[in-house]
Protein backbone atom coordinates (compact mmCIF):
# COMPACT_ATOMS: atom_id res chain seq x y z
CA UNK A 1 0.00 0.00 0.00
CA UNK A 2 1.32 3.50 -0.83
CA UNK A 3 2.70 5.45 2.11
CA UNK A 4 3.44 2.37 4.21
CA UNK A 5 6.43 2.23 6.57
CA UNK A 6 7.20 -1.22 7.92
CA UNK A 7 9.07 -1.04 11.21
CA UNK A 8 9.09 -2.88 14.50
CA UNK A 9 10.56 -0.01 16.51
CA UNK A 10 10.39 3.77 16.51
CA UNK A 11 13.41 5.49 18.03
CA UNK A 12 13.56 9.11 19.17
CA UNK A 13 16.92 10.89 19.35
CA UNK A 14 16.68 11.46 23.10
CA UNK A 15 13.41 10.06 24.44
CA UNK A 16 14.07 6.39 23.71
CA UNK A 17 12.39 3.70 21.65
CA UNK A 18 8.89 2.41 21.23
CA UNK A 19 7.86 -0.91 19.74
CA UNK A 20 5.30 -0.36 16.99
CA UNK A 21 3.21 -3.29 18.24
CA UNK A 22 2.68 -1.15 21.36
CA UNK A 23 1.11 1.49 19.09
CA UNK A 24 -0.99 -1.03 17.16
CA UNK A 25 -2.18 -2.97 20.19
CA UNK A 26 -2.63 0.08 22.40
CA UNK A 27 -4.68 2.17 19.98
CA UNK A 28 -8.45 2.41 20.39
CA UNK A 29 -10.17 0.08 17.93
CA UNK A 30 -13.41 2.02 17.96
CA UNK A 31 -15.28 4.84 19.61
CA UNK A 32 -18.72 6.36 19.68
CA UNK A 33 -20.13 9.68 20.85
CA UNK A 34 -23.88 9.34 20.98
CA UNK A 35 -26.96 11.31 21.79
CA UNK A 36 -28.78 9.46 24.57
CA UNK A 37 -32.10 11.12 23.78
CA UNK A 38 -32.69 12.82 27.13
CA UNK A 39 -33.17 16.26 25.60
CA UNK A 40 -33.79 15.59 21.91
CA UNK A 41 -36.15 12.65 22.47
CA UNK A 42 -34.31 10.35 20.11
CA UNK A 43 -31.06 8.42 20.22
CA UNK A 44 -28.48 8.93 17.48
CA UNK A 45 -24.75 8.80 16.82
CA UNK A 46 -22.86 12.08 16.57
CA UNK A 47 -19.40 10.73 15.86
CA UNK A 48 -17.85 7.30 15.69
CA UNK A 49 -15.27 4.92 14.33
CA UNK A 50 -15.73 1.21 13.64
CA UNK A 51 -19.42 1.15 14.64
CA UNK A 52 -22.39 0.10 12.55
CA UNK A 53 -25.34 0.96 14.77
CA UNK A 54 -26.71 1.91 18.14
CA UNK A 55 -29.84 0.36 19.56
CA UNK A 56 -32.10 2.27 21.93
CA UNK A 57 -33.21 -0.71 24.06
CA UNK A 58 -35.18 1.08 26.78
CA UNK A 59 -34.72 3.92 29.26
CA UNK A 60 -30.98 4.55 29.58
CA UNK A 61 -30.15 1.26 27.87
CA UNK A 62 -28.08 1.24 24.68
CA UNK A 63 -26.32 -1.39 22.54
CA UNK A 64 -23.47 -0.39 20.24
CA UNK A 65 -22.37 -2.75 17.46
CA UNK A 66 -19.02 -2.83 15.70
CA UNK A 67 -18.23 -3.09 11.99
CA UNK A 68 -14.93 -4.90 12.50
CA UNK A 69 -15.38 -7.43 15.30
CA UNK A 70 -13.03 -7.78 18.24
CA UNK A 71 -11.17 -11.09 18.40
CA UNK A 72 -13.12 -12.28 21.43
CA UNK A 73 -15.07 -11.04 24.42
CA UNK A 74 -12.04 -10.20 26.57
CA UNK A 75 -11.41 -6.57 25.72
CA UNK A 76 -11.67 -3.19 27.37
CA UNK A 77 -14.02 -0.27 27.06
CA UNK A 78 -13.84 3.11 28.72
CA UNK A 79 -16.73 5.52 28.89
CA UNK A 80 -17.99 8.92 29.94
CA UNK A 81 -21.42 10.52 29.93
CA UNK A 82 -23.65 13.39 30.93
CA UNK A 83 -27.29 13.19 31.86
CA UNK A 84 -27.88 16.34 33.88
CA UNK A 85 -25.22 17.97 35.95
CA UNK A 86 -23.26 14.73 35.91
CA UNK A 87 -23.85 11.13 35.09
CA UNK A 88 -22.09 8.07 33.88
CA UNK A 89 -22.37 5.33 31.33
CA UNK A 90 -21.31 1.81 32.23
CA UNK A 91 -21.45 -1.70 30.89
CA UNK A 92 -24.74 -3.34 31.59
CA UNK A 93 -24.27 -6.76 33.12
CA UNK A 94 -26.41 -9.89 32.96
CA UNK A 95 -25.04 -11.19 36.25
CA UNK A 96 -22.71 -9.94 38.94
CA UNK A 97 -19.74 -11.42 37.08
CA UNK A 98 -20.67 -11.16 33.43
CA UNK A 99 -20.76 -7.98 31.39
CA UNK A 100 -22.94 -7.92 28.31
CA UNK A 101 -20.24 -7.86 25.69
CA UNK A 102 -19.82 -9.98 22.61
CA UNK A 103 -17.03 -9.70 20.07
CA UNK A 104 -19.16 -7.16 18.21
CA UNK A 105 -21.56 -5.60 20.70
CA UNK A 106 -21.33 -3.59 23.90
CA UNK A 107 -24.43 -2.89 25.97
CA UNK A 108 -24.40 0.19 28.14
CA UNK A 109 -26.64 1.81 30.69
CA UNK A 110 -26.81 5.44 31.67
CA UNK A 111 -26.97 6.46 35.30
CA UNK A 112 -26.99 9.32 37.71
CA UNK A 113 -27.35 9.41 41.48
CA UNK A 114 -27.65 5.65 41.83
CA UNK A 115 -30.40 5.05 39.29
CA UNK A 116 -30.92 4.61 35.59
CA UNK A 117 -31.09 7.95 33.82
CA UNK A 118 -31.48 8.85 30.17
CA UNK A 119 -28.28 10.42 28.92
CA UNK A 120 -27.74 13.72 27.19
CA UNK A 121 -24.76 12.07 25.62
CA UNK A 122 -22.46 9.12 26.10
CA UNK A 123 -18.92 8.46 24.89
CA UNK A 124 -17.12 5.14 24.79
CA UNK A 125 -13.86 3.82 23.39
CA UNK A 126 -12.87 0.21 22.76
CA UNK A 127 -9.40 -1.26 23.22
CA UNK A 128 -8.09 -4.71 22.49
CA UNK A 129 -7.38 -7.11 19.67
CA UNK A 130 -9.39 -7.15 16.46
CA UNK A 131 -10.56 -10.32 14.74
Amino acid sequence: MAGTIAADTLTHSTAGSLATNFVVEGSAKGFVYFNGGRVSGSVSIYESFNKSSIADNATADYTVTATSNMSGTQYVVTSSANCNTGGYVGLRNESAATATMTASTERYYGGYGGGFQELNFGMTATFGELA
Binding site: I45, K51, S52, S53, A55, D56, A58, T63
Partner: peptide
Protein backbone atom coordinates in the same frame (compact mmCIF):
# COMPACT_ATOMS: atom_id res chain seq x y z
CA UNK B 1 -40.57 -2.80 25.39
CA UNK B 2 -39.60 -2.39 21.77
CA UNK B 3 -36.06 -1.50 20.77
CA UNK B 4 -34.98 0.93 18.09
CA UNK B 5 -32.00 0.38 15.80
CA UNK B 6 -30.25 3.45 14.39
CA UNK B 7 -27.60 3.18 11.67
CA UNK B 8 -24.21 4.72 12.33
CA UNK B 9 -23.58 7.63 9.91
CA UNK B 10 -20.01 6.55 9.09
CA UNK B 11 -21.12 2.97 8.51
Amino acid sequence: CCRILIADPNW
